[in-house]
């Protein structure tokens, strides 16, 4: 794990930007700050609007999952001229049945989370929908790791399910 709290923007690299955010589980008051900051970074790099939107939405859902379910987690991003890669890793309960968790509307969120406007079972489907590549790995009792790639070239293949 690198970096302190907030973003660590490595400008020493010519073409690639990378950094990370630490996310504290249960902290709804700051929920969305990391994704908002990443969105600003993507905008400042002049990345096309729709790509920024997709990356921001995917990141926001990943951030919320850490806040809702995990004790803590880290969101990392790597921006290259070709793609935006987002890796969310948490120390949390893990997911027992990933296939089930990927179904739209399936949720194990408690009532108080639903009352906060989350936990409707669309988080993982939403991450997948907005990514060109989506990987998830989870160990019950340890945590979950999600890796998402959003390609910056709109004409590239792999967005077959986009409406």
């Amino acid at each position: 794990m690198k970096g302190g709290s907030g973003a660590v923007l490595n400008k020493s690299m010519e073409k690639n930007y990378e950094g990370s955010f630490h996310i504290v589980g249960g902290d709804f008051s700051r929920a969305g700050e990391a994704s908002t900051e990443l969105k600003s970074i993507l905008q400042s790099l002049g990345i096309e609007k729709e790509i920024v939107r997709r990356a921001s939405i995917a990141t926001f859902e990943a951030e919320m999952n850490i806040i809702i379910y995990a004790t803590a987690g880290i969101l990392r991003y790597v921006i290259t001229p070709e793609e935006i890669r987002i890796i969310a890793e948490d120390m949390g309960p893990g997911i027992e049945d990933i296939e089930l968790a990927m179904q739209e509307g399936y949720s194990t969120a408690p009532e108080w989370v639903r009352e906060m406007g989350w936990g409707s079972g669309m988080g993982l489907p939403n991450m997948k929908k907005n990514s060109d590549e989506f990987y998830i790995d989870s160990v019950v009792g340890e945590g979950t790791r999600v890796e998402m790639v959003i390609r910056r070239q709109i004409f590239s293949e792999g967005r077959s399910n986009d409406h």
Partner: peptide, 9 residues
Amino acid sequence: TDLMSEVLY
């Protein structure tokens, strides 16, 4: 909606 993931979706 009141559910934020729906907005995002």
